[in-house]
């Protein structure tokens, strides 16, 4: 085995996929498990989620989102298709670049949502920053809907990523 360009590209792809598993795994945990379970939990037990589990999950969630994007952009540059993919393949009419490009843009939108909408609003909703009683449910709703948008986008995003590798 040689530590050549192929090996380093593989290493970055592995780190990209590892980070992505943690990110989307936690995203699906929030949407498929935690949020639907909250109404079934007695009020006196809810702080276990809102004060302990959710803040810990959100920590790994936002940092794995960032590392997925950083490793992904490095990988695209190492593979030589960063600008073609970000142009959605419109500059060279290559389906592989179009597919990976759609995935990259959806990933970038999802990471923006995590850092600039979900996380700031979750801090308000979970009481990690002081807000009025009026503002708290609004922040929770904003975080919840944006998290659902990311869950929706994860479906075509993963199709784009996997199809770019295997179909095109």
């Amino acid at each position: 085995m040689e530590f050549d360009h192929t090996w380093w590209t593989f290493l970055i792809r592995w780190l990209h996929v590892l980070s992505g598993f943690m990110w989307v795994g936690l995203l699906w945990y929030f949407n498929f498990v935690q949020t639907p379970s909250m109404p079934k939990i007695p009020d006196e037990q809810k702080p276990a989620i809102s004060k302990v589990i959710a803040p810990a999950a959100l920590f790994w969630f936002r940092w794995s989102a960032l590392s997925t994007i950083v490793f992904g952009l490095i990988l695209a540059q190492m593979n030589g298709y960063l600008t073609e993919a970000l142009s959605l393949g419109l500059t060279d009419n290559v389906a592989k670049h179009s597919a990976i490009g759609f995935g990259m843009w959806m990933g970038l939108i999802m990471m923006f949502n995590v850092w600039f909408i979900i996380w700031p609003n979750q801090k308000k909703a979970l009481g990690m920053v002081e807000v009025s009683d009026e503002e708290r449910p609004k922040a929770a709703r904003r975080a919840g809907v944006t998290s659902r948008i990311n869950t929706m986008l994860s479906i075509p995003m993963l199709y784009a990523m996997v199809s770019a590798q295997n179909l095109y």
């Binding site: 959605l88 393949g89 389906a95 809907v145 869950t151 929706m152 994860s154 479906i155 075509p156 199709y159």
Partner: peptide
């Protein structure tokens, strides 16, 4: 009604976007 209010609506919306995206990819790569 917002389709994102339910998990099934969220998944169906994701699948619809996937189909639209595949059509666009094939059109661009043709």
């Amino acid at each position: 009604m917002n389709p994102l209010d339910s998990l099934s609506g969220t998944i169906i919306s994701g699948l619809v976007i996937t189909v639209i995206m595949v059509v666009l990819i094939n059109a661009i790569g043709a």
